[in-house]
């Protein structure tokens, strides 16, 4: 599982405060905490600062990479902010994200075309939120073909089929899960990734739903997740599910997790 650590997001109050007061230490600490917990990409988001997003995002990338060697997932729909952040980024960044919404697609594509960047492709179009598996597959297909045409390698694409709250419609859970399966089947070599806590929006006991949902998604082939890597319950769910799905040779990751005390 490719883990994208979600904690450096300005919509979290502590992070917003740290950004505004240029508190490098606070950001470094969140970066290092995540780096120590299986994180493959550290997501950076300064989206709430509409006028200063490019400046703050750049500062976040510099601060994070000063603390750790892990690449960032640059989380913004704004081409100027993405470009500014990429300029200072060392190593291969992930772009979070492109979608089929025309403006976003036209803005982000020139930045990533022909590069070796990783990219999250969000299943959303100008026609609104996709509801059925077919809706999502159609959008995913168009996005993937567009990205391939622009010389992005299939293994660098992470399709996010878009999780919607179960509270609103009981079919939303399986709709997502079945899409993961269909995408994996239809587009060989492609990755999938998503933040899936949206599934439990509007319901109590969210962590239980989030974990069970993660396990179901892993069994259908989800191989990227935007999560809090410090969440032991979630990490246990992922590692356990991957072992059960036959993705963990000799159960080595599972055993390692056990020995590190993750299951305590």
């Amino acid at each position: 599982m490719i883990i994208i650590g979600e904690l450096i997001n300005a919509s979290r109050k502590a992070v917003a405060t740290a950004i505004e007061s240029c508190d490098k230490e606070a950001i470094r600490k969140i970066a290092m905490d995540q780096a120590e917990h299986h994180t493959d990409y550290i997501d950076v988001n300064a989206g709430i600062f509409v006028d200063k997003e490019a400046e703050y995002l750049t500062w976040l990338v510099e601060t994070v990479q000063d603390a750790t060697d892990i690449p960032c997932a640059i989380d913004s729909p704004d081409p100027k902010a993405v470009e500014a952040a990429l300029k200072v980024h060392k190593g291969t960044a992930m772009i979070n994200s492109i979608s089929l919404e025309k403006e976003r697609y036209d803005n982000i594509m020139p930045i990533i075309a022909g590069t070796g960047l990783k990219v999250v492709a969000l299943c959303m179009s100008d026609e609104g939120m996709p509801v059925t598996v077919d809706d999502r597959l159609k959008i995913a297909g168009k996005l993937i073909n567009g990205l391939l045409k622009n010389n992005i390698l299939v293994e660098n694409i992470f399709v996010d089929p878009l999780v919607q709250p179960l509270a609103v419609d009981k079919t939303y859970g399986m709709g997502f899960i079945n899409t993961i399966e269909a995408i994996k089947k239809e587009f060989k070599g492609i990755h999938t990734a998503c933040g899936l806590s949206n599934i439990s929006y509007g319901l109590p006991g969210r962590k239980h739903l989030n974990r069970a949902f993660m396990i179901q998604a892993v069994l259908k082939g989800l191989d990227g997740a935007i999560i809090n890597p410090l969440d032991k319950g979630m990490m246990s769910a992922i590692i356990t599910a991957e072992a059960l799905a036959g993705k963990d040779d000799y159960c080595m990751n599972y055993l390692k997790a056990f020995r590190s005390g993750l299951f305590n």
Binding site: P165, A167, V168, Y201, G202, L203, P204
Partner: peptide
């Protein structure tokens, strides 16, 4: 107040 949840409201 968090005593009823979205599915119940629906």
């Amino acid at each position: 107040s968090g005593d009823m949840f979205i599915p119940e409201v629906l």
